[in-house]
Amino acid sequence: MKEESFTCRTSSGEETINLGLRLGSLLNEGDIVALAGDLGSGKTWFTKGVALGLEISSDTVITSPSFSLMNEYQGRCALFHIDVYRLKNVSDFLDAGLDEYLYGNGVTVMEWADRWPEVLPEGSIKVQFVILDERSREITLSGCHPKVLGMLKQIREEAE
């Protein structure tokens, strides 16, 4: 299957949240969103948007899971927000039991997911963040699974 992608620029945290919301509203149980990008590039902000798309109450604060490794939230389905920033290798990831969330009953958003692409199931949606300047980010969504291609098509159409 050929990989397809959709790239857009956001010029504020709010716009990054909005893009996350658009993706989040298309997600269902079992979907995996794999985030990659430097510190401060907007991964946690994007996840705040995904949470809104999953109808998690806007009163719920989505915070960085860098220390806790995983934060769980409940909306129209569960959101498992994982961050592997502090982990050393794949065996740490597996030992902490984090792989179980990838096959759990919810949507998984994983930060620094490019470190071990081998743990990601085939249908994952990849999101790459690039810092352009203080406020602007270039965000690319990509994947090759038919389900992901369908989502990309919808997001692209909404954007046009």
Partner: peptide, 13 residues
């Protein structure tokens, strides 16, 4: 010892 922010913090530990 590993010079980074990388604990072995597994449940196994």
């Amino acid at each position: 010892a590993y010079g980074g922010v990388v604990p072995e913090l597994a449940s196994r530990e």
